[in-house]
């Protein structure tokens, strides 16, 4: 993630929503987006681990981003969407409320994490792009999938 504002590079982000916030992940990290999948819970695992899904024969661990970002729990009737991402620890699915568009952003509109963010979210957000009428919060994917207490 470059914060070099001198070069006006266009970067593409895959956007998604959690509560009333809009986030973005670099497009090249995203392998695919799939609707809610049957989930197998893993007892005694880190609470952020929502469970395991079957991705065409591969077993992929799904992390609940709401819980990771310490946001309020997702309402029962809201089926989460899986964003399957490639990370340094392999394929993972990130559960989000709703998937958004892929947007092009201008580096010039980038700023540090907004003051309104608190706690753990602040550590996992590298900054924000000021879009028209909304802030796009950039998720530090690698940091987000590194769970406290899990090597």
């Amino acid at each position: 993630m470059s914060t070099d504002t001198n070069v006006a590079v266009e970067t593409q982000f895959c956007t998604f929503h959690l509560t009333n916030l809009m986030f973005g992940i670099e497009v090249e990290r995203v392998q695919e987006v799939i609707r809610a999948q049957p989930m197998t819970g893993v007892p005694l695992a880190n609470p952020v681990v929502e469970g395991l899904i079957n991705l065409r024969g591969q077993i992929v661990t799904a992390l609940d981003l709401r819980r990771r970002l310490e946001l309020p729990a997702r309402p029962e009737d809201l089926e989460p969407t899986n964003i399957v991402v490639r990370t340094s620890v392999g394929q993972l699915s990130l559960l989000v409320d709703r998937i958004g568009d892929v947007v092009d952003v201008d580096q010039a509109t980038f700023e540090g994490p907004p003051e309104t963010l608190e706690g753990v979210a602040r550590e996992l957000i590298t900054g924000a792009y000021k879009l028209d009428g909304a802030l796009l919060l950039v998720l530090d994917t690698e940091a987000a999938v590194r769970l406290p207490g899990v090597v």
């Binding site: 197998t40 695992a45 681990v49 395991l52 077993i59 620890v89 392999g90 899990v150 090597v151």
Partner: peptide, 19 residues
């Protein structure tokens, strides 16, 4: 038998997963 991801490596109660 399929291995568990790195987030579950220390889950001593499980030896892996299967479909």
């Amino acid at each position: 038998v399929k291995p568990l991801g790195s987030h579950l490596k220390d889950a001593a109660l499980f030896a892996g997963a299967t479909i």
